[in-house]
Nucleic acid binder design. Structure first.
Lengths: 143, 143
DNA sequence: TTAAGTGCAAAGGCTTTGCAGCATA
DNA sequence: TATGCTGCAAAGCCTTTGCACTTAA
């Protein structure tokens, strides 16, 4: 069980409330992605009085502080995960919802070139693939 | 003014209604991206009685028929555009909302390799960049 | 002590759906 | 003529917000 220490280095000038500690803990231990609803469900089981508004407010805050990354996967689902140093990308299986993360330097090349050619500054990248995972592909062939 | 011909080759077994013709026309002449609300606004100015439900129903239909592509840009906005043969990618300026489209074979390389390594089948790609466009970058420096 | 955070409930967007009437094939 | 489509209005989601109370610093 990962614990967030009691000092407030990550949120200068902010209150490190029990709710925030709980939410950060859950996001970290989710190992992968978690959406607001599921985060609320899990938080509720440990603190029955926590509200969905608090979940949303803090997800927004964590993003602003750079503690958490938001990713839009699939049609409308927003997923959250701890911030990482390396950019990484996502593949989502449209049959079972499985998420595969991957990372490739080619993406950095594309960005570098695009910035130079267009004179723009890229601050965020999202490379999203959708398709059929190995397992579901096999199941389809067999079935 | 691009016109969609009156036969129904694009939608076998479907009714090519006046509303659908109008919507397809507008999507094509939007030259770029358009979202449901704006599409509704423009459609209304030509057919005051068209309903938002019809817009949504048909956007869904057009996607299913492969006539139109949906792209999620920025936080929550869904954008629609005519289907194209070549995959292309998007950059969105977080200041002015400008959308720059680009295309690079590197993306295809990434997909090819990913499919082989993971044994998956990729059916959809979205490479989304966010940042500051040239114009807004200059404006920030000057201001 | 006091600014910041919380829960609650209500409101806001966007999108979908049930239904009765209408229009296309 | 018979299905499919439409408009309308209502409902469904997900997310945000106003307010009064609570709490961390």
């Amino acid at each position: 069980m990962r614990t967030i220490r009691n000092t407030n280095a990550a949120m200068p000038g902010r209150h490190l409330t029990a709710q925030r500690r709980l939410l950060l803990d859950l996001i970290h231990s989710a190992r992968g992605h978690i959406d607001a609803k599921e985060l609320y469900r899990r938080a509720s089981s440990q603190d029955a009085s926590i509200s969905l508004a608090t979940v949303y407010r803090n997800l927004r805050l964590f993003q602003d502080l750079g503690l958490v990354d938001e990713t839009r996967l699939g049609r409308t689902s927003h997923q959250y995960e701890p911030k990482r140093s390396a950019e990484h990308q996502h593949f989502v299986c449209t049959y079972c919802g499985r998420v595969i993360e991957f990372q490739t330097p080619l993406v950095d090349n594309v960005i570098e070139r695009f910035q130079q050619e267009q004179g723009v500054k890229v601050t965020k990248t999202e490379f999203y693939l959708e398709g059929v995972c190995r397992q579901c592909g096999q199941r389809k062939e067999e079935g």
